[in-house]
Design a protein around this nucleic acid. Structure first.
Lengths: 353, 353
DNA sequence: GTTAGCACTCCCTGGCATAGAGTGCCAGAC
DNA sequence: GTCTGGCACTCTATGCCAGGGAGTGCTAAC
């Protein structure tokens, strides 16, 4: 687990304990916690007055705040930070629970998008939060096979098999009609020459070399060039972030402001900002947590984001995580996100062999 | 435009006019309309007292209701029904607007799901309501081309090209490893024999005939059978309903009840109920409207559904529409849904030739 | 048939008092 | 020095009540 470094002055044992209990309590029922309640919950045989003094100190240090004078106290972002970094007792999943997750993740999927969808569904289902899976970044893609099928006069269906199991279809418009035979030959040529190569490389090599030699091309090669140009065009990455379970957010009274909620939903819909946020977590070494404004998005005020990258053979493929109210059950959510990332990595690893 | 037949006693001209103005007003600002306001709006030089009498009659007839004694009146479902069936002045789209829609719809799409997604986005964008597009029902599917690619030991990628432009990928597990050559031959055989046939037929013919003759099969045919069995298995229809713009619902104060909203979102997410509802509209002859409870779903209380089927060459392919608060701007929404259905039909028609 | 007038109902708002929860601080106990 | 009980204080939430506003229904007159 990795966290934004934040300096915390040393707190004595008792103060830490009280902070922990307060945060736990607040996470449980969302109400500001008063000194009497905390004194009872803490199990320390302290009077409310004593607890009040401690709470006042914690407020001075910026860990707690009061919505108004005569209310109890609740954690600030800084308070959550300390809680998570130093006070949290994780409740790791037991074997049975891991097994359930593994089964769901190991189910065969048609494409990485399907897989991502299924995993984000899983995340949101288990945590009752919003699940997010960012898809493998497509920077190292190996061409496995290419196929052309004539659809009509000048429309050709291109089928690309990439990496272990990713299939892409795309329809391209061509300048003149090609026969099935011509297309077949072009595909054969491309497969023979470039299968197993990195697609970025293919794009460069092929287009440069062949374009330069365009004058001297024979018929086959002309076909190859026209096809390849469009086939290996840099592709817009498209929808590479899958979100699930957004409705869960509606349960939390903290976010009951309709307008705020709408803005959140819009963020999930656009995905652009979300991608940016998750991008930052690609190189984290494990679970990473943003609390409220820490993420840098005003919209996410009152929300926390828990992410973990998943990687195969040391190469980070993507990031997954959940988003929910700041007072989420970190002790469960963190293990779930962590384990899910590992299981997804394992599943992808198995498939690539 | 077609509507559930509802018997309406004849109303005199003036009463109808007042009802219309009242509904229009209520649609505009969502507040119960009082006699004074209505008298002013109607432009009939009537006193509020007279209007009150008319309103009382309309209430007796079940067209209006009052949230409480001293509030104005608002339309009941029955009131909306009459309004839509007999009083509504449609505001048809002008050519420029139609052209904008056409451009969006005619954009090339990779698959029918993509197209549906784009169209429901369009619907929701234009109307500020929730857009829904039900996909073509997959009862008449023509096999165009099939292709097998070996992925690993015993996993084979199947690519099916169906109809004009639909491509399906699927990975199947096979009993023993097949060489690229074997798969190629099997595909060649299937394409030669079955391309252009209905897939349902293919399934039946092929599996029955060949299974019966299993004993006497040569090597090629064994391959064909194993491949075909899994390839042409009856497929789960999957996600055949696309919803967009759900967040729009949050703007309407009528639906500001968080819990109600959540239920609605759940309906959109599950889609099952939605499919059922839209299914009922397949054989309507144009725009069809469900007001509030008319749809038969309690969740849709307070919501109206406006649908239209779209068809190619007389065959209904699917249904599209919008869902929003009962007080939606029917005069605009109905033409939009109608035109969109026609444009989508036209687009599909063009592509199939 | 239409209208003015009037009594009536209901909602909404603001003011006010009260009860409850919680704090801060101080003085005294350990 | 640390902890605690006590106490005054603050702020919220609730209920109650009165007044204003919007709108209705009814009746009697035009």
């Amino acid at each position: 687990m990795e966290s934004t470094p934040t300096s915390h002055p040393p707190l004595n044992e008792r103060t830490q304990h009280l902070l922990r209990v307060l945060v736990e309590r607040y996470i449980r029922d969302g109400q500001p916690v008063g000194s009497r309640t905390l004194a009872r919950d803490a199990g320390l045989d302290l009077s409310p007055a004593t607890v009040r003094n401690v709470m006042a100190d914690l407020e001075d240090l910026g860990y707690l705040r009061s919505p108004h004078t005569s209310a109890g106290r609740m954690p600030t972002a800084r308070g959550y930070r300390l809680f998570i970094d130093a006070l949290l007792n994780l409740r790791p999943l037991d074997d049975r629970e891991v097994e359930v997750l593994r089964r769901r993740i190991d189910q065969p999927a048609q494409s990485s998008v399907d897989l991502a969808r299924s995993v984000s569904d899983l995340l949101s289902g288990v945590t009752h939060l919003v699940g997010v899976v960012m898809l493998p970044r497509r920077n190292a893609v190996t061409l496995r096979h290419v196929e052309f099928l004539p659809l009509s006069e000048n429309r050709v269906l291109v089928i690309l098999v990439l990496n272990a199991q990713e299939v892409q279809n795309r329809i391209i418009q061509v300048r003149r009609p090609y026969s099935a035979m011509e297309l077949q030959q072009a595909a054969n040529y491309l497969n023979a020459e470039f299968a197993g190569k990195d697609i970025q490389q293919v794009r460069e090599t092929l287009l440069k070399d062949l374009r330069d030699a365009r004058d001297s091309l024979d018929h086959l090669m002309e076909t190859v060039v026209e096809m390849a140009e469009q086939t290996f065009e840099a592709q817009p990455d498209g929808d590479d972030c899958v979100v699930a379970g957004q409705t869960h957010l509606m349960q939390y009274a903290d976010l009951s402001d309709l307008d705020k909620l709408r803005q959140l939903f819009d963020v999930f819909h656009q995905k652009r900002d979300l991608l940016h946020l998750f991008d930052q977590c690609v190189h984290a070494h494990g679970v990473q947590i943003f609390i409220g404004e820490e993420s840098g998005f005003d919209v996410l005020e009152g929300c926390s984001v828990v992410t973990a990258p998943y990687s195969v053979e040391g190469q980070v493929l993507g990031v997954l995580g959940v988003i929910g109210p700041t007072r989420m059950a970190y002790d469960r959510v963190i293990p779930v996100v962590d384990v899910t990332a590992r299981l997804l990595a394992a599943a992808l690893n198995a498939k690539s062999h």
